[in-house]
Amino acid sequence: MELQEILLKIDELPTPDPIVQRIVSVASDPNASAKDLAQVIKLDASLTARILRLVNSAYYGLPRKIVALNEAIMILGFKTVRNIALSIFTYSSVVKNKKSTVDHYQLWKHFIGTAVGCELLAQMVGYPNKEELFISGLLHDIGKVALDYIFPEAFAAVTKLTKNLQISFMQAEEKLNLPNHPIISGKMIEKWNLPEIVVYSASGHHAPNNFSESVYSDVVAIVHIVDFLINLMRYGDSYTYGGLTLSSFALNVLGIKPSFLTNLTEKLRLRLIEAEDFLKIEQEVS
């Protein structure tokens, strides 16, 4: 199957609903205020309720309960609220594909795990724009969801291959002559009008070495390292069962030593426990 065919089919994929799209665009408008963002979100009562539930979750650990959306945006910032909205939308896209045979919960767990890990690693290495890294981690494997939508049979074949041969998703895609999922992820993120940094960190997460000359080399490295760790920790399931290697180039870009990864893994375990509410997005809001 050719990339072009897939790309054509991507257009058929569910795009974020208009409200999420507007959230994304308001959150990246330099002249927008908290009120502007709140007004958009408030149009969807269910989304508002879910956002507020996540805002008050252990992941953000606020000292007091926040009841007003406006306040939530002020306190957590535009980008974080945008991230929550996007998480909710992505969750629906992953889980609501009824045609598929995939264990969506495990795949979602991989997404959230990587998102949380990327934000944590960004903070630990002193990268200021850590909120964007959350989205990069969240969407780095969205290409897999696209494949599952467009060709559930192909996705099933890939997962069968990775399991039987103990190889990575990429290696299986190559064996089956399928376009690589990071590239599809990149195309989708682009289509959703998310910032370039998210596009590149997702599309490059299996080839950090190709970004040695790029301004995005550090964010690509972050997503690469966290994706590797989350797979290693067996948090969720990305349908990769071997063949993954950690790029020493990525470690060098961030100036970290392998021993740093032990520290990161320990902190990540704690963060993942705090992030558990992100796994239960579908639960009805009381």
Binding site: G61, M74, L76, G77, T80
Partner: peptide, 8 residues
């Protein structure tokens, strides 16, 4: 949390 915030 190392997150900037604004408190109203």
């Amino acid at each position: 949390k190392m997150s900037p915030t604004s408190l109203v």
